[in-house]
C-alpha cells in the first residue's frame, strides 16, 4: 500500500513538472525571442577593445542576472540519462534560457542608459544549493560587460 502511495505521489509530481515546466519553458522562449528581436540594436561583443566608431564615448559597467529553477520532470529525465550517458537536453535548454535571459536583462539595462553597444561581455554561472539533498537545484547566471554610450 505504501509503495502504491509513493508511486502515486511520484507520478503526480512528474505530471505536474511536465505540464507546468513545459508551459513555463514555452512562454519563456516566446518572450526571449520577442525581446531579442526588439533589443538587436544594442550590440553585445566579447571583444575587449571598442569597435571602430566608438572613439568618443562614456563607459560604464552593466550587468543582468537570473535564477531559473529546474522542474521535477527535468530532474527525473536527467537522472535516467545519467545511467546511459549522452546529452542531457533538458538541462541544456535550462542553461540556454538562463544565459539568454541574463544577456537580455543586461541589454535592457544598457539601453536604459542610452548605450549603443556592450563590450567585453562575460558570463558567470553557479548553482543555487538552496534545496539540500537534490542533485541540482537551480542555476544562476550573471552576464556583465562595459556599456558604451556615445557622447
Amino acid at each position: 500500500m505504501d509503495v502504491l502511495i509513493q508511486l502515486a505521489i511520484f507520478l503526480a509530481l512528474l505530471a505536474a513538472g511536465y505540464a507546468f515546466g513545459r508551459r513555463a519553458e514555452r512562454r519563456h522562449y516566446d518572450s526571449i525571442r520577442a525581446r531579442e528581436d526588439a533589443l538587436r540594436h544594442v550590440l553585445v561583443l566579447g571583444e575587449r577593445l571598442p569597435p571602430p566608431g566608438f572613439a568618443h564615448c562614456e563607459t560604464t559597467l552593466v550587468a543582468g542576472s537570473v535564477v531559473i529553477s529546474v522542474d521535477y520532470f527535468k530532474t527525473v529525465v536527467a537522472g535516467l540519462r545519467n545511467l546511459v550517458g549522452g546529452r542531457i537536453s533538458s538541462y541544456e535548454s535550462l542553461l540556454d534560457r538562463a544565459r539568454r535571459e541574463a544577456v537580455l536583462r543586461m541589454q535592457e539595462r544598457a539601453e536604459a542608459l542610452g548605450a549603443q553597444a556592450v563590450i567585453n561581455m562575460k558570463f558567470e554561472t553557479s548553482r543555487v544549493s538552496g534545496n539540500a539533498g537534490q542533485s541540482i537545484g537551480s542555476v544562476e547566471v550573471l552576464a556583465y560587460g562595459t556599456a558604451l554610450i556615445r557622447t
Binding site: L13, V67, V70, S138
Partner: peptide, 9 residues
C-alpha cells in the same frame, strides 16, 4: 516547490 514546477525564482 518551484523545483517541481519549474520557472524563474
Amino acid at each position: 516547490f518551484k523545483n517541481i514546477f519549474g520557472g524563474e525564482l
